[in-house]
Write a protein that binds this DNA or RNA. Structure first.
Lengths: 351, 351
DNA sequence: GCTCATGCTGTTACCGCTCCCAGTCATATC
DNA sequence: GATATGACTGGGAGCGGTAACAGCATGAGC
């Protein structure tokens, strides 16, 4: 009796790892047939298919994705490029993407962009691991936008953006966006309608060259109402930054309404207001942006603009999927329009 | 003059994608030398190395990770398995892992576990894409723990856990954990020291078979102080769940101190307390868990147990890295001990 | 001067999978 | 009955890398 090492014809002759060759050997078919079964391709007799499927089950075989990708098969993986996974907007979008991607059998990778990260084409491709690797870029701010620009035009990538300026429908690159400019304008008008003379704005970080669309929307509303546009104040993303920015702003008693770049900033403002002895909404109205899950439970509960980041993420993936597999992919869904959610933190201007 | 299609000896003879063959051809060396340079292996003359490096730069070549993985080279990718990317603890841990992984040149994938997901070995391996693919499992709750169990003992995986019961130092699998049991006990003792007769507890979801370590810690402290242990109340992860659970609890005027399973639950409790006309901390003390970035800015600001999820994530990756590359990996760092952060939401028992 | 170690380089065989192409049948069609 | 289908199946050649081995100089040691 001798060990038969020459039996298996293909690679992995004496191997223990279960490959399609092993499955093929056990099932008594060729590796090609196994491949067909795995990929649900036609031209396999039902009984053969069943046999192979059973064998796969028995052997606990899992196709090796690296090999699939290398052999030029369908890739079924997305990389999400984002600045911060903990920030509510990004986290929610990520969740939407992941959810949809997993449902479609895609693997999702994630790579966090440092604010000062190198964003040359090569740097970005290196993060993706392979030229032509599908990606979703969460590009609400500058770094993301730069990364998006660095990718070649034919690269399968979709961006999650702020609403692009109507003028520059640029790049023809697939993208999904939220009309936060319009939403910010709406929120600002709402505050004016409550009798506030003007509205101050604590902006989330913007590129040095460009204001955020939220800031633009705020300006739009004030200008078209003929109201003075106060100096723009830059906050960060955190409650702390909102708190610091508001601390000085609240020294001015004429400030009666503040539109914040996001809910976290608004939270900081709420805190600063309380410490400054300003009643919200009696003396001061505060509006946030995003409608994070916490915002409804704050004291006072926060009036805010609800943004459907999760839906946006789902759509982004859907768009990418459609790009990759035009036939099999379901049509990408839509996402909810921004909506002003009025709660306790906003009210009539003091008199 | 004719196009020379036979020049390149190896694969990709007439291809346009830049592979190591292309780099080799341009640099006038063999593909193997290019491979050596890429991997920083020895036995390459400095001048040759420089030449290859320059060529790589010029051609904008990026090694194909699928091919590297397939060829049995170092893998340099981790998959994070978690239940929710938006939950503060998970998000922070994920950030820690990603940060450390990227620094080490690893790709990070993420896969969200549904509460009712199939967690057989094969299901999990399928998510990882390849048997033996390194992973970090965020296993603070049941699903994660089950997944961890499903992986074969020799699989390179590290778990982020609650502190295991001292009895069962189980499985020998590498893991990092937070002593939330001790921290919960500490927080409970703190409340008792303020004069509260007992402490109520709103638990985050636990497996049906097992209480969370936080709940255990709470029981520990009450029992060893000889205080009555109130009925355990199950909340969820969200402010809403805390709000709902507290709404009934607060009908009982003897409830003066509540330890919450996390900060979001505590936020809901704060809200419910206000609506019930209970002053915090005058009538009621509330303590959270996690110290989310928002908690310091709430009104009242939240006394909570600070947990270093980010450090935990970094350490988890460090441990995995050391497992994968015992020589080159730096020693995994430590993470901060839990710490009770006393703020405004806790105070002496009412009398 | 010749052997031997040593540094550098190229050749070859895979890794596990998918493509393309060439069979082999059974069933229609003429 | 011979030929054309067409469903099914198998064989081989890569995909872009890495590992193991083999060559070939160069310098040291005898």
């Amino acid at each position: 009796m001798s060990t038969d090492t020459s039996a298996a014809p293909g690679p992995a002759a004496g191997a223990q790892a279960t490959s399609i060759w092993e499955v093929a050997r056990v099932a008594g078919v060729s590796h090609q047939t196994v491949s067909r079964v795995i990929n649900g391709k036609p031209h396999v007799k039902d009984s053969t298919r069943a046999l192979v499927l059973r064998t796969i089950e028995e052997l606990g075989f899992t196709p090796n994705r690296s090999a699939q990708a290398l052999a030029g098969g369908l890739v079924r993986s997305v990389t999400v490029l984002t600045v911060d996974t903990a920030l509510y907007g990004c986290a929610a979008a990520l969740r939407g993407i992941e959810e949809e991607a997993r449902a479609a059998g895609f693997t999702v990778g994630i790579s966090v962009l440092e604010p000062d990260a190198a964003t040359g084409t090569q740097d970005v491709v290196e993060r993706l691991g392979r030229p032509g690797a599908p990606a979703v870029v969460i590009a609400f701010e500058t770094v993301g936008a730069r990364v998006l620009d660095a990718l070649p035009a034919d690269h399968p990538v979709v961006g999650l953006m702020e609403r692009p300026d109507s003028g520059q429908q640029q790049s023809g690159r697939p993208q999904v966006w939220i009309d936060d400019r319009g939403a910010a304008a709406h929120a600002t008008r709402y505050l004016l309608s409550l009798g506030h003379r003007t509205v101050h704005h604590l902006s989330i970080p913007s590129s040095t060259s460009r204001l955020t669309q939220r800031t633009h929307g705020w300006q739009d509303a004030l200008r078209s109402a003929g109201r003075p546009v106060p100096t723009l104040l830059d906050a960060g993303w955190t409650p702390r930054s909102g708190y610091l920015a508001a601390s000085t702003l609240l020294d001015d008693p004429s400030v009666t309404a503040i539109l914040c770049g996001n809910d976290d900033v608004a939270l900081g403002v709420l805190r600063a207001a309380r410490e400054a002895g300003r009643d919200v909404p009696g003396d001061l109205s505060v509006i946030g942006f995003d409608d994070a899950p916490q915002s409804a439970y704050l004291t006072p509960s926060l009036t805010t603009v609800r943004l459907d980041f999760e839906g946006l993420g789902r759509s982004a993936f859907g768009l990418l999927h459609a790009l990759l597999e035009p036939d099999s992919a379901p049509a990408p869904g839509l996402w909810a329009e921004p909506e002003l959610v009025v709660r306790e933190s906003s009210g009539p201007a003091p008199r």
